[in-house]
């Protein structure tokens, strides 16, 4: 079984070849045998390919903090769902989550936006919703003005595609201060 790990910030793959009588793992095509010994003093010691090393380990969720042979290591299991989420940069279009009308435009065409920044506020069914930018970028087109109406799933804002030269400097990457909205960012806090 191959496992994807993060060793610090580095990606690493490790394959478990055998568990008995001793653990054998394969890393970068080479096999290593690991023998674990609990010492009388309560410490743990392993032998890695015959080489003795002291080991201490603390767990926090999917992350392990190790002290191994005098070195501190942080190892975490890569969750494939995190990897999938990281690949989503957010599209160029913002669609209306429900039919309604524009209450306020917070940005003008050509203006830079940060991920999570509100571009416009809409109202539908007594409810005001902030439509936020799915990524850092530049507002290319605002397809509805204040007071104008739209249908569900209509595109109301288009962002300049990242390759296209924008009229202003691209915004610096900063942590998003999001008013998350259900449609513009269906992932929300998840």
């Amino acid at each position: 079984m191959a496992l994807a790990l993060l060793l610090g910030a580095e990606a690493a793959g490790i394959e478990i070849v055998r568990r008995r009588p001793h653990l054998v793992v394969r890393i970068d095509g080479r096999e290593h045998e690991v023998v674990e010994r609990d010492e009388a003093d309560g410490r743990t010691r392993i032998e890695l390919d015959g080489r003795p090393l002291a080991l201490a380990c603390a767990a926090d969720g999917n992350t392990r903090f190790l002290r191994l042979g005098g070195r501190n290591l942080r190892v975490s299991l890569v969750d494939p769902r995190d990897a999938a989420a990281a690949g989503e940069g957010g599209g160029d279009e913002i669609r209306a989550p429900m039919p309604g009308s524009v209450v306020t435009l917070h940005k003008a065409e050509g203006e830079a936006v940060l991920r999570g920044e509100t571009i416009l506020t809409i109202e539908s069914m007594k409810l005001q919703t902030a439509l936020v930018s799915p990524r850092d970028g530049v507002v290319e087109l605002l397809l509805r003005g204040e007071g104008q109406t739209f249908d569900k799933d209509e595109v109301v804002v288009r962002l300049a595609s990242p390759s296209a030269p924008g009229p202003s400097e691209p915004a610096p990457p900063e942590p998003a201060t999001a008013e998350a909205s259900p449609a513009a960012d269906a992932k929300g806090a998840a």
């Binding site: 109202e123 007594k126 409810l127 005001q128 919703t129 902030a130 999001a178 008013e179 998350a180 909205s181 259900p182 929300g188 806090a189 998840a190």
Partner: peptide, 8 residues
């Protein structure tokens, strides 16, 4: 009237 994110 202001919408907010229920996951929060």
């Amino acid at each position: 009237k202001k919408q907010f994110e229920m996951r929060e």
